[in-house]
Write a protein that binds this DNA or RNA. Structure first.
Lengths: 211, 211
DNA sequence: TAGATTGTTAATCGATTAACAATC
DNA sequence: TAGATTGTTAATCGATTAACAATC
């Protein structure tokens, strides 16, 4: 229980979180591994194995207490804390992500957008101000922002990542279709639409594994 | 070489594809597993193992012929064919994805947007028409569209997925933060921002594996 | 209590890593 | 040829699946 949570498990935790939220909303006080598994599409032993990493406090013959389980999930996922972020690149995708209400629900606050297009600079998107990309370093440093979301074109991605890292962000969430390098210790997550599209395309053409 | 390509390998293929494209653009005729690996951040033996699934035609002492490798990657990824798709949900994210130029580069053509908001219906986003969600079944059937991209709110996701599946799509690319069920044989890929955000949040709070 | 369901241990599966003989 | 680099086999690692004793 005190070892590092395996990555595949960690990526399922948000799904459990959502499922538990919805069971709670229905007034359920307890939930079994089987029900939870059915909801997110994994087997019951997978659920128990995953939740055992959290010390989720399941009781034999009863299941998991929904409110305790939810609290554990939120703690482990870091959702009990507020995080701030900036979005670099105020194009279609950057704008859409900045407005995405789901982020607020997970405690993420987008403080600023950056773009190099001077016609955008100075404006607001909702209540998020758009700054010149040259202000990036200063603002990240001043506000000690830990996360930069990258939505610039591929050819500019590495450059703005370097600026963000240099200014002290801890993590990069990259939506640009580009392979990015970061120094050791910096967290990098690629959300690469090309990967999704290409794998779907492969399955559409050749059929999927279980066929 | 004739077995099913492992999923982790398949998800790296688009990255190889991009890297090979960029080496070709620089005029390189051959590329070694080591160079390719450095570019996308994996080891050389991983690259050779992955490419061995394709019959990539590497030559000892020389490397891989860039144009042949690119052709093999495009074939396996299904990028040599055009695919059509619809986007269901014309909100911020749906609009951004519809406009995303990267899709065209991968042979994906978005034929229509759907929304239930009648003030949007009948308008165009770029050259993509917005239809009433009630037209969904008819249009998917008539044009035999294989892919539906889901960008509606979570609570409506399952319903529109069911409509799309019923109309005959082969694959669902789900951007809604919801656990979706599809019948066997239908390809489902979840592009769940909550998963990305929650795992980043965990790493920001607790540090990442290699720390 | 009896039935239900957990947490954990063991077995299996599959991917990554390493090593090297084959060969351009 | 000699050096470089592949494809493949074997070893390792880690996650999933299965089974069950423990226990609420």
């Amino acid at each position: 229980m005190n070892m590092r949570i395996p990555k595949p498990t960690l990526e399922r935790l948000p799904l459990y979180h959502r499922a538990v939220e919805s069971f709670m909303a229905k007034g359920r006080e307890a939930i079994s591994s089987q029900e939870l598994g059915r909801e997110i599409g994994v087997d019951d032993y997978q659920v128990r194995k995953d939740l055992s990493w959290l010390g989720a406090g399941g009781r034999p013959g009863y299941g998991y207490d929904t409110s305790y389980l939810l609290a554990r999930l939120e703690e482990v996922l870091g959702l009990t804390r507020e995080h701030t972020a900036v979005v670099i690149g105020a194009g279609h995708l950057g704008s859409a992500l900045s407005q995405y209400s789901g982020f607020r629900r997970y405690g993420l606050q987008i403080l600023a957008l950056f773009d190099r297009d001077v016609t955008k600079v100075g404006k607001y998107l909702g209540d998020i101000p758009i700054f010149d990309i040259r202000e990036l370093g200063r603002i990240i440093k001043e506000q000690q922002i830990p996360l930069a979301i990258i939505t610039v074109p591929a050819r500019e991605a590495q450059r703005v990542v370097d600026l963000a890292v240099e200014a002290g962000v801890k993590a990069i969430w990259n939506f640009a279709p580009a392979s990015i390098q970061v120094p050791p210790g910096i967290i990098l997550r690629n959300e690469d639409l090309a990967v999704g599209l290409a794998t779907l395309s492969h399955y559409i053409v050749y059929g999927q594994p279980s066929d």
